[in-house]
Nucleic acid binder design. Sequence first.
DNA 1: CGGTCATTTGAGAAGCCTCAATATTAGTGG
DNA 2: CCACTAATATTGAGGCTTCTCAAATGACCG
Lengths: 209, 209
Amino acid sequence: MLRELHCLVEHVGPYEAGQHIFREGEAFTAIAAVRTGTVKTSVVDPAGREQVLGFFLPGEVIGLNAIHQSRYPCNAVALDRVTLCRFSFPMVATLAQRLPDLQAQLFRLLSQDIGKATLLAGDYTAEERMAAFLITLSRRFAARGFSPRRFLLTMARTDIANYLRLAAETVSRLFRRFQDEGLIRVDRRDLEILDEARLRALAQPILRN
Amino acid sequence: MLRELHCLVEHVGPYEAGQHIFREGEAFTAIAAVRTGTVKTSVVDPAGREQVLGFFLPGEVIGLNAIHQSRYPCNAVALDRVTLCRFSFPMVATLAQRLPDLQAQLFRLLSQDIGKATLLAGDYTAEERMAAFLITLSRRFAARGFSPRRFLLTMARTDIANYLRLAAETVSRLFRRFQDEGLIRVDRRDLEILDEARLRALAQPILRN
DNA sequence: CGGTCATTTGAGAAGCCTCAATATTAGTGG
DNA sequence: CCACTAATATTGAGGCTTCTCAAATGACCG
């Protein structure tokens, strides 16, 4: 499967911080796996308010939510220097006809994204959402071989706030409180998890494991 | 494609109001299209608080979010008398290997659900969410041949509130206000949309069309 | 027709937001 | 290399949306 995929992959980038990878409404042609860097997806409502939908780390796939409409339903922006592996979706789908494992993997990826979108849709406190956000980030970094205890927040406070449906000020205050309580140490974009167990306990209502 | 699907469909039900169709944690074996009735999906956190994830009307498919973990990540409960068309997922997937149209349809359904989950995840006012909920319900009924102007709310106020991340009291007050302003007429579970245009305008920030 | 449950209504409280000011950092050009 | 500027982040005070609590009303069912 990997060899076959290799034939139709296209390495793109680098995109610099702030550059658009795709824009809402553009024709959907390809999905892409993040190779390096972080991608932010968001929508902008008629009044100009932005709503951040997600952050994508190396190894994660963007564009899956565009299949349905054949158009990208959101913007994707590089938060730092980003490189991608792009796959023409028609070609991947055709290949998946011959490779059951590839088809199954695509189904899993799509299904997983439903779950992710669901997670933060719930009715939880600011504290719970922030804790869940940090734990989730930590696990995703760990899954890609980075340290789960210490990592860089590649996104701005505003983006975190927007993603968590909070004001930027509230994010600031939560960071401070978590730090005062010995849960984390945060300096600028540099974040260290000091008490994973207690943080996980806070996130429990959302993550449930 | 339809003929082939027909061979592996299994009609199940009826389930009566309150009966579970599947429970969180159960092994995932099948997806199902709602034939009649309404299904509610929800998760329960360790403290026992319920979080409603969605409502499924005739023609809509439940269980897609279970593919990823091979277990149902939520409970599905009948809100009234429900009948389903159940499809063994391994069988559908195998069939999709031979039928590109079926594969494409599954990809679309999954992708669509990502979008649905995203919709109400955003940071919107109670009024915006309620308006978007009613407009969305209306369109979904219309898509299945029912009246988009007048329909029955098969779910309790508590369920609507929980789904929209509101208190049941807030839902009550919103219904009253919408009615006072001539947007809707609501009596018990019977809902009529009187001013679709203005309701749509309220939902604009969420639905964006 | 009484009991139970769902819904509505009102009053007060809480969590989070907004606004405003300050502090800090990063980027830019001299 | 450093001052200057713009952007980002932090902190405080007050306000608003929505929640919680309590009670009353209305619907449904045996």
